[in-house]
């Protein structure tokens, strides 16, 4: 479905993504992991057209995506969420999703249909309660769900979920994992999931791709990757600690480089 070949992105000489290649097959739920700054979000930005790539190729169902503007990528059937939620603050919750459903649809749809799809999407992420709420009143978890609802309302075939569930408590994290699993299995949407908390990610994904300093250092089934010495060295540390990390990882530790250094010692 998605074939990424030798994808590179340089920011003024700094190599954020370095010749990364991978494939994602229809119906898969793939985890994309790596330490902070390893290039995960940049890979998403390149696929979604938010950033232009330096070199390489991204093929989606045989069609080259490189050079396509974001809105066209969306119309091709690829939706994304942003790691740091980016709600439209001048619109209320339902309008946020409805505008996405209306403009994100590959074929033009009627207005009523957009509102219907928006309500459905809010239902899937369990945010349907008060849909006229001001988005400023949504908490961290609500904003993450809004991101997801907006992406789903465009009826994608491939979802790029940049979660890194910062700011959520443990039950919310569990729920988010279940939600993605549900979206994959019930709605048949292929997913690439970026996540820091291994304990949750490893349980649900079919396959894992590991990035470090912009390079792909490992790829395989969750248990294979967890045993890969290279991965253990840069990221996982002692693999017996994996479960334990899931529990004590909090927002600050996710966002700070302190997190990486702790893993590395």
């Amino acid at each position: 479905m998605l074939i990424v070949k030798k994808l590179s992105k340089h920011f003024k000489g700094f190599v954020a993504v370095d010749s990364v290649s991978f494939e994602v097959h229809e119906g898969e739920l793939v985890g994309l992991i790596g330490p902070n700054g390893s290039g995960k979000s940049t890979v998403f930005n390149l696929i979604s057209g938010n950033l232009s790539l330096t070199s390489g190729s991204i093929r989606f169902d045989g069609q080259e995506l490189a050079g396509l503007p974001s809105h066209r990528v969306c119309h091709q059937g690829i939706a994304r969420t942003f790691q740091i939620p980016r709600p439209f603050r001048k619109l209320d919750l339902l309008e946020n999703v409805a505008v996405s459903a209306f403009f994100g649809s590959a074929v033009p749809i009627r207005r009523e249909e957009a509102w219907k799809r928006a309500k459905e999407a809010l239902g899937i992420v369990k945010l349907s309660g008060d849909s006229n709420v001001d988005v400023a009143r949504l908490g961290a978890s609500g904003l993450k769900k809004l991101e997801l609802a907006r992406a789903l309302s465009t009826r994608p075939r491939l979802l790029l979920a940049d979660e890194s569930l910062g700011g959520l408590d443990e039950t919310e994290m569990e729920q988010a994992g279940e939600m993605l699993e549900h979206i994959r299995s019930e709605m048949g949407i292929t997913i690439i999931w970026v996540e820091h908390i291994m304990g949750i990610l490893m349980k649900v994904v079919d396959r894992v791709i590991v990035l470090d300093h912009g390079e792909k250092i490992s790829e395989g089934l969750p248990n294979e990757v967890a045993d890969d010495p290279k991965v253990i060295e840069v990221y996982l540390g002692d693999k017996n600690e994996v479960g334990h990390k899931a529990a004590d990882t909090t927002v600050e530790s996710l966002q700070s480089s302190d997190y990486i250094s702790r893993k590395q010692c």
Partner: peptide, 16 residues
């Protein structure tokens, strides 16, 4: 309204 708030996010949900 979406564009005036965030052009990247608008483009990502299919707005030209």
């Amino acid at each position: 309204e979406a564009i005036s708030d965030d052009e990247d996010a608008s483009a990502s949900v299919g707005i030209n």
